[in-house]
């Protein structure tokens, strides 16, 4: 790891001042950034430590819940308000990582975490995300973990977060602040697809920082489920994950929310499938049809064709759990 300068920020403004200079990165939990620095993926000249800013709160708002960007993943997962109103988020968080890492990782860091693509991590390999123009190692390489939706020939990596899949499903917003002030980015518009610029994970401007997330109130609490399918029972990234949330009226689906992880460069919200389910009866058949709609446009590569089966199977399974018909 290259030597760097360290600054502990005491105000938001000092963070914004610091990141306006090239080579400066924000550090909070550090679980992703320190890992990247150890791997030589990035080598910042300066780190600005934001963990002493008062942005840890998990608080009720008029319209929902606010998660401060520094709220720890473990704290959010076990917060009484979150468990009561947005259990899907807790389920997703607990499906990710280990308790030790959740004790370090923050909400903002989770949103900002970068792909676990092996070609991104290995600096001897080509990777357009790490080093634009070097090519995509995964495209014709080992791509078992890779995207089936929204990939480009520049990058087929997936976003690794579980929490973000739940936040995408629940229509959360990311609150960011920059020199020009504060703005709200709908969760589904925060992360990008790779297109021609896989080096950009999201739409956060270089001089902006995340200060929190707002999750709107909903009626999904009783019928939410996060399913994560992975190569071992815990402490592994998803082959496929599904966040499913239903609002039921008797046995009829009033509202549905569905998003997938492990399938795209961003948390993959399934709007069409959601729309299809609304007004339909709760049944395995409804869910299977929704899954088929969800899979439209999916494209597999040499090693991940199984996701074309695993993804719809997981959608059905998650929806059945959410609806309580398992």
């Amino acid at each position: 790891m290259k030597q760097f300068q360290y600054q502990r920020a005491s105000t938001q403004q000092s963070v914004l001042d610091a990141i306006s200079k090239p080579g400066t990165k924000i550090i909070a939990g550090g679980t992703n950034l320190v890992d990247h620095m150890k791997h030589g993926i990035i080598a910042p000249d300066k780190l600005v430590d934001i963990t002493h800013l008062p942005l840890k709160g998990i608080t009720p708002t008029k319209t929902g819940i606010h998660l401060g960007t520094l709220a720890l993943n473990s704290a959010v997962a076990e917060d009484a308000l979150v468990l009561q109103k947005q259990p899907l988020i807790s389920m997703a968080l607990r499906a990710g990582s280990s308790q030790q890492l959740r004790n370090m990782a923050t909400v903002g860091g989770n949103i900002m975490q970068r792909t676990r693509c092996t070609y991104f991590y290995d600096t001897t390999m080509p990777c357009n995300k790490r080093e634009p123009g070097t090519g995509c190692g995964a495209l014709e390489g080992y791509n078992r973990m890779h995207a089936i939706f929204g990939a480009s020939d520049k990058c087929i990596a997936v976003h690794p977060s579980d929490m973000c899949v739940a936040l995408a499903a629940l229509g959360a917003s990311v609150i960011v602040v920059g020199k020009k002030g504060q703005r709200l980015i709908p969760f589904n518009e925060f992360h990008r697809l790779p297109d021609d610029h896989p080096e950009l994970d999201n739409h956060l401007a270089k001089d902006e920082m995340i200060i929190g997330v707002d999750i709107p109130d909903n009626n999904f609490a009783k019928n939410s489920y996060y399913l994560k399918v992975r190569d071992r029972q815990s402490y592994a990234f998803a082959l496929v994950s599904v966040a499913a949330a239903l609002e039921l009226s008797g046995t009829t689906i009033k509202k549905a929310r569905l998003a997938m992880g492990g399938v795209a460069h961003k948390p993959w919200r399934l709007f069409e499938a959601e729309k299809f389910m609304e007004g339909k009866p709760v049944s395995e058949d409804t869910f299977k049809q929704a899954a088929q709609i969800a899979m439209q446009g999916a494209k597999a590569y040499e090693n991940n064709a199984f996701k074309l089966k695993l993804a719809p199977a997981s959608i059905v399974e998650a929806l059945k759990h959410a609806a309580g018909i398992v």
Binding site: G30, T31, V34, H39, S74, S98, Q99, N103
Partner: peptide, 23 residues
């Protein structure tokens, strides 16, 4: 040394963390 095994677990202010990813 990369937060993948837990052998480095210590408590910081009472919470368990991976000391290998803690500056």
């Amino acid at each position: 040394d990369m937060g993948q095994c837990g052998a480095c677990t210590v408590h910081v202010d009472g919470h368990r963390v991976n000391s290998c990813l803690t500056l």
